[in-house]
């Protein structure tokens, strides 16, 4: 006999979004409602396989009775809730979040969605003045909380800094880091429970860091790469992808994706092999896969050299 898991039976509540009433299960988020209605709601720190952290604020909406705007990714619906997404305030805040991030970060690898939203909402990062000088390697991590040099406003401060390459598997390009907390969550309680990285420092000077910014090989990192898997801006990426981008041969249009099952152990994780130029460049897993929820281990994510006899083994 087949049994069907119905999950928890939830009562339906009534939510009005832009004058249209929706009946949705109790416990759904506002974003769930917006998604099911087909709205194109921008998001950066939200991911379906991570706990919402409400940090980026790009998904904000108006909720009747709340003076500040509300993050749709995290706020759960209540019966009778009245939501508006079509107001000036919502559009302004979404535009400004994209604009402020664009003014401080390199968003060029944040994907097509972000590029589209930036145009759609009219983000203009350039109006904050010319870009200031980048920080030297490690300098941003050494700033003391509560102390900064007063700016003269001639240039705009950014988080620009050199790429950190301290291991063979992935690079950390923190000039692109928008502090969405996704990597910290994936490294911590949401997936890996390794806690190799955390947010350090404060305010604009906050960084993602190991303890005392030691290189990853000296930290608790187990190279599962789940941080790469959730990074929305290309701040964390595989060495393979980084090198191809640096060499100018990164070719997302020519990329094929092949689904398979990981052969390393009996868990049976679904893998998606991203192949460019007949070479595996990345391995991911679908976030809605019941076994992985998008997360893998070092073997699944990086243990593919043996299937492609392209390069000779490194050290013989």
């Amino acid at each position: 006999m087949t049994t069907v898991d119905l999950g928890t039976i939830r009562r339906l509540v009534s939510v009005t979004v832009d004058d249209v009433e929706h009946r949705v299960p109790e416990g759904a988020t506002i974003m769930d409602v917006l998604d099911s209605a087909g709205a194109d709601t921008p998001r950066l720190c939200q991911a379906p396989n991570l706990t919402p952290v409400n940090a980026c604020r790009v998904c904000v909406v108006e909720v009747e009775g709340s003076r500040p705007l509300v993050p749709s990714c995290a706020r759960r619906v209540e019966d009778g809730m009245v939501v508006r997404t079509d107001t000036d305030r919502v559009a302004h805040s979404r535009r400004m979040v994209l604009e402020l991030l664009g003014s401080a970060n390199d968003m060029s690898q944040a994907g097509d969605d972000v590029a589209r939203w930036s145009i759609e909402y009219g983000a203009d990062p350039e109006r904050y003045g010319p870009v200031g000088p980048p920080a030297a390697a490690g300098e941003r991590g050494n700033r003391h909380a509560g102390h900064h040099s007063a700016p003269d406003g001639e240039t705009r401060a950014t988080v620009a800094q050199p790429v950190t390459v301290d291991n063979d598997l992935y690079v950390r390009d923190y000039a692109r880091c928008i502090l969405c907390y996704k990597c910290v969550e994936a490294c911590g309680t949401d997936a890996q429970n390794t806690f190799a990285i955390a947010v350090a420092g404060r305010g604009f000077d906050a960084t993602i860091s190991t303890e005392f910014a030691v290189p990853l090989p000296d930290s608790a990192c187990v190279y599962c790469g789940n941080c790469i898997g959730v990074c929305p801006t290309g701040a964390l990426k595989s060495v393979a992808e980084h090198e191809r981008r640096e060499a100018g041969v990164w070719d997302p249009e020519g990329e094929t994706v092949t689904s398979t099952i990981c052969s390393f152990c009996g868990v049976g994780c679904t893998l998606e092999l991203h192949v460019q130029d007949n070479t595996i460049v990345n391995v991911t897993s679908p976030h809605d896969h019941s076994v992985t929820h998008g997360h893998l281990c070092i073997k699944g994510r990086f243990g593919f050299q043996h299937v492609q006899n392209v390069a000779p083994p490194r050290d013989r």
Binding site: A104, Y128, G203
Partner: peptide, 21 residues
């Protein structure tokens, strides 16, 4: 700008841009 915790974008970057302007 000093006391922003840095968690959300509007305050983390906004306080910097306000000071610069």
């Amino acid at each position: 700008r000093d006391e922003s915790c840095g968690q959300c974008v509007p305050c983390r970057v906004g306080t910097v841009r306000q000071e610069e302007a």
